[in-house]
Simulated scan of single mutants.
Amino acid sequence: MPASATDQPTSSEWYWVMTVQTADGRLNTRTATITVPAGFTRAQAWDFIFSQFKKDFGSPLTVLFFDLQPNQM
Rank of each mutant, 00 (worst) to 15 (best):
A3H: 14
A5W: 11
A5E: 10
A5D: 12
A5H: 08
A5N: 11
D7G: 03
Q8H: 07
P9H: 00
T10A: 13
T10Y: 08
T10D: 12
T10P: 15
S12I: 13
S12H: 14
S12W: 12
E13Q: 07
W14N: 00
W14E: 00
W14I: 00
M18V: 07
M18S: 11
M18Y: 05
T19L: 02
T19C: 01
T19Y: 01
Q21R: 12
Q21F: 00
T22S: 07
T22R: 07
T22N: 05
A23G: 11
A23S: 13
A23D: 08
A23C: 07
A23E: 09
D24A: 10
D24G: 08
D24C: 07
G25W: 00
G25M: 02
R26T: 09
L27G: 05
L27E: 04
L27C: 03
N28R: 08
N28F: 05
T29C: 01
T29N: 03
T29L: 03
R30T: 06
R30M: 02
T31E: 04
T31W: 07
T31G: 12
A32K: 10
A32D: 05
T33A: 04
T33D: 01
T33N: 08
I34W: 11
I34N: 12
I34S: 09
I34M: 14
I34T: 15
T35C: 08
T35F: 11
T35Y: 10
V36C: 06
V36P: 12
P37N: 09
P37C: 09
P37Y: 05
G39R: 03
F40V: 09
T41L: 13
T41N: 15
T41H: 13
T41Q: 12
R42W: 07
R42T: 11
R42M: 13
A43C: 14
Q44G: 13
A45L: 15
W46Y: 12
W46D: 11
D47W: 12
D47Y: 12
F48R: 15
F48D: 13
I49K: 04
I49V: 03
I49D: 00
S51E: 01
F53P: 10
F53I: 03
F53D: 00
F53Q: 08
K54F: 06
K54D: 10
K55P: 10
K55T: 14
D56K: 12
D56Y: 05
D56W: 05
S59M: 02
S59Y: 00
P60V: 01
L61N: 03
T62F: 01
V63F: 02
L64H: 00
L64D: 00
L64T: 00
L64N: 05
F66Y: 07
F66C: 06
F66N: 09
D67Q: 09
D67E: 03
D67I: 02
L68Y: 03
L68S: 06
Q69K: 15
Q69F: 12
P70M: 02
P70V: 02
Q72A: 11
M73P: 15
